[in-house]
């Protein structure tokens, strides 16, 4: 029995990893300029200063790496939140972590702090996300009903969005206002390796913190008392996971802007494949999120002619109806 489960998990991981790999490679071929397989290959193995090499290595590669990392972060954070709150509707966007990060980052833009240090943006994103998640715990408590949780999330999100709107409202430069507005829509267009270097370490730290809680999350699904009796310290677990979510989501959002609903869709699709075990959902959601965001970013490039359609707009267009569908299912008691 255990052996069979392991085999299934292995197949799932391999399948998802292959999917991410395939999408990653596909992404290297998608863009406004058409490049042949040979050109892309040549650019990757022997980079020179030719236009095609610059396009492949300095534009498409960082963009795809960021799509993979941001998607993984959002997928993993979604699965972690759902396990921790034991609620299938929890997601960084819905509970307000993304809006908190967005607020932190837009304040940095607004006050011009980004000019002091390039690190200001990710750090403010993390602080914003952390405050939002901490507030959620204060508002909704630990054993909140799905409805209470979502209402608290809506309250936090709305408040963060209102403050962000205030920053846009009072921005001294029309251009800064435009920048914040567009940045809030979420996009990975024309990001560079600098952005990768800026966000990847923080996302990595967040992943480690979240993944290290996998076993405890599975035990937690047996109930808090059982978990305590099995030696899981709930408070330590909570702090570790919340920190992990805040650090990873904060860094991701500060680079990409808000990309919603990834953390909702991915764990939901993958949950049946891991036997509804929250701990085992983490790793697969990381890969699944990666695949979803790379795919969405490919779609953005294929769909855009003239004015770019933003990545966050695409994921929300898919995600919002999905959220409604989940709510209906929840009301019927089927999840």
């Amino acid at each position: 029995m255990i052996r069979k489960t392991h085999q299934k998990t292995f197949t799932l991981y391999t399948g998802l990893a292959l999917l991410v790999g395939l999408l990653f490679i596909t992404s290297m071929f998608i863009g406004p300029s058409t490049l042949s397989i040979n050109a892309v290959w040549a650019a990757l193995v022997a980079p020179d200063q030719s236009p095609s090499a610059i396009i492949v290595n300095q534009i498409r590669l960082p963009r795809t790496i960021l799509a993979a990392l941001v998607g993984a972060t959002l997928g993993l954070a979604g699965a972690t939140l759902q396990g921790l709150l034991r609620n299938p509707l929890a997601e960084p966007g819905i509970i307000g972590a993304s809006s908190g990060a967005a607020l932190g980052a837009s304040l940095v833009l607004y006050f011009g702090l980004a000019e002091i240090s390039i690190l200001a943006l990710p750090i403010a994103g993390m602080i914003g996300a952390l405050i939002a998640v901490a507030m959620l715990f204060l508002l909704a408590g630990r054993n909140a009903s799905p409805l209470a949780l979502i209402l608290s999330g809506v309250a936090i999100s709305s408040f963060a969005s209102a403050l962000t709107a205030l920053a846009i409202n009072l921005a001294s430069s029309a251009y800064a206002a435009l920048e914040i507005t567009f940045w809030l829509m979420g996009s990975l267009t024309d990001r560079s390796m600098t952005h990768v270097a800026l966000a990847a370490p923080a996302m990595g730290v967040g992943w480690v913190l979240m993944l290290s809680g996998a076993r405890s999350l599975s035990i937690l699904s047996l109930g808090e008392d059982t978990a305590s009796s099995l030696g899981v310290s709930l408070n330590t677990l909570r702090v570790r996971l919340v920190l992990g979510i805040a650090i990873a989501v904060g860094a991701a959002v500060s680079i990409s802007g808000a990309i919603g609903f990834v953390g909702l869709i991915v764990p939901h699709i993958l949950r049946p494949f891991v036997g509804f075990e929250p701990g085992r959902l983490l790793g697969v959601s990381l890969l699944g999120g990666s695949a979803l965001v790379i795919a969405a970013d490919i779609a953005v490039r294929l769909l855009s002619t003239g004015i770019e359609i933003r990545l966050g707009v695409v994921t929300s267009l898919i995600g919002a109806p999905f959220f409604l569908f989940l709510l209906l299912k929840l009301r019927r008691g089927t999840i």
Binding site: L109, G112, E179
Partner: peptide, 12 residues
């Protein structure tokens, strides 16, 4: 006035 473009976030 402060904006991202002035903050060195432009692509190298």
């Amino acid at each position: 006035h402060p904006s991202l473009s002035r903050a060195g976030y432009a692509h190298p």
